[in-house]
Design a binder for these strands. Sequence first.
DNA 1: ACCTTCGGGAACATTT
DNA 2: TAAATGTTCCCGAAGG
Length: 236
Amino acid sequence: MEQDKLREAFEDAFEVLTQHSVGELQYPPDHKNHMAFLNRYPHIRGNYSCCGMLPPEERSYNWRSLTNGSANFCREESFHQSLQSITGNQLVQTSLFQQKGGKGRRKLRLFEYLFESLCNSEMESCIQWVDKTKGVFQYISKNKEKLTELWGQRKGNRKPMTYQKMARALRNYVRTGEITKIRRKLTYQFSEAVLQRLSPSHFLGKDLFCSQYGQPDQEYLSLNHWNANYYGYGSY
DNA sequence: ACCTTCGGGAACATTT
DNA sequence: TAAATGTTCCCGAAGG
């Protein structure tokens, strides 16, 4: 009984944490890891509301829930403060290159794959940060096809993925506001809401979003304001 | 002129 | 079944 509760608590905590990271998810295989995890992050105790996540049965992965979730996440000061002890890398490494078996597994999305690649030093020759804090990144012209081919393989596409096709998918992101195109060759920018989801630690210390004085609805305004500046990257 | 990059329409496929 | 999320193909434009 006690073990079941502990296990549930861990699963909640792990999911909460990894939902704000990137990639496909997997529960660790044994209970030792559960315990080690909880000991390492005792502030995360399997409360979905601690970062605005819905319980699994209510959760949907559309854009609206993503932005709402990140807004709620930013309102939770205690969780915000707790995360200060976790680096972006730690968050990423918790779930990168992993798969969640069993319930609720979802597809890896392209922007998650891009973020994952940006955090992977082995992909530096293919894609790099231009301004990590603002989520601006750039494909490396010479090797970008390697990155796209790996994406295609990972998705198990019928035909090889190309930059042309990946860029087409990115333009869909531009339409939905998840990514903006920077007026610079091969350069894009994650939207702030996407960045918050992928790596909340990006925003630690940014009073723009996590201020205790901030109003929840302001996120959308600030998001627009933030994106409105994207033409200003001509100096890069 | 050529190549690369960009932008979008449209049909189609897969997953949730 | 419908919606979400790409994937694939195509065409034309812009810029170096």
